[in-house]
């Protein structure tokens, strides 16, 4: 499902101008990463997709709906949003119930609920924790419960607010493979991240934001080769891109294999 922002401005009640006119669209099945400095407006922006926020001016569309014309409950059938802070999202006393909440709300029958929950817990490595109290889990585990809760809703659009935060190596890999699977299923994925290696390795398009504006919008290879933009957004290139550029290479390796392929080519 396609989503779009059309000259979206948002000012918080206290007067902070968080979004200063954002326009872009994300076609069905695309995987988009949003990066940029703390306070750039990333969270504020994506919270418009499920109607938590309505633009001060401009419009946001999700498929053939304008968000202004629909309730949060209606929009939640189309857009799943995983919160930056899982403790704002989770409230049940059992992991299973937190994950079942969405599908039940969407009126899945109990059998479909059970299978959606089982699948989502498996994808996030939490099968063993189904009966645990979320507050007895570590923060990164709770963050994955929050992710499972959204996956279980099987929405055509999935929005992840800093999904790899606090995850270990296995957790990051798990999330990378979830993003890949969502893409393969032609679902639209939008992820906010501060992890540039994760970004370069798993997304086809990157938007860089600073101070309520979009500074760049292109492929990872292009975006991470714009030093002024990166500096302005307090972002750095992925590790091996930084290494390649320090070594004076002209290529832009976005992952380990690409880097070593380059090395091999140079040794011939």
């Amino acid at each position: 499902m396609e989503v779009s922002f059309n000259d979206v401005k948002y000012t918080y009640p206290g007067g902070v101008e968080a979004l200063k006119g954002i326009t872009f669209n994300v076609p069905t099945g695309q995987s988009l990463a949003i990066v940029g400095q703390n306070g750039a407006g990333k969270t504020t922006l994506v919270r418009h997709l499920n109607g938590i926020f309505q633009p001060t001016s401009g419009t946001v569309t999700v498929g053939d709906w304008t968000t202004a014309g629909h309730t949060i409950a209606e929009l939640s059938a189309r857009v799943g949003y995983v919160f930056q802070n899982p403790d704002e999202q989770l409230f049940a006393r059992k992991v299973f119930d937190d994950v079942a909440f969405g599908p039940r709300n969407l009126k899945f029958d109990e059998e479909a609920v059970a299978s959606a929950v089982t699948e989502a817990l498996e994808e996030t490595g939490l099968t063993k924790e189904a009966q645990s109290h979320p507050h007895h889990l570590s923060l990164s585990e709770r963050k994955r419960v929050a992710l499972a809760a959204v996956l279980a809703m099987k929405t055509p659009v999935v929005v992840l607010d800093e999904p790899t935060t606090g995850q270990d190596h296995n957790g990051v890999r798990m999330i990378a493979s979830i993003v890949k699977k969502l893409r393969e299923a032609n679902r639209t994925v939008i992820a906010i991240t501060h992890d540039m290696d994760f970004c370069a390795e798993n997304f086809e398009r990157v938007i860089v934001m600073a101070q309520g504006e979009v500074l760049a919008d292109s492929s990872p290879e292009n975006v991470f080769n714009l030093p002024e933009v990166l500096a302005k957004a307090r972002v750095e290139a992925p590790q091996l891109e930084r290494l390649a550029s320090s070594l004076g290479w002209k290529s832009h390796p976005m992952n380990v294999d690409a880097f070593v392929d380059n090395l091999e080519a140079k040794s011939r």
């Binding site: 270990d168 190596h169 296995n170 590790q239 992952n255 380990v256 880097f259 070593v260 090395l263």
Partner: peptide, 17 residues
């Protein structure tokens, strides 16, 4: 499950090859 940096992984792969 902690993982190494891409620098470490790239060097390890380069050594392997």
């Amino acid at each position: 499950a902690i993982g190494t940096t891409r620098y470490t992984r790239a060097a390890a792969l380069a050594e392997e090859k």
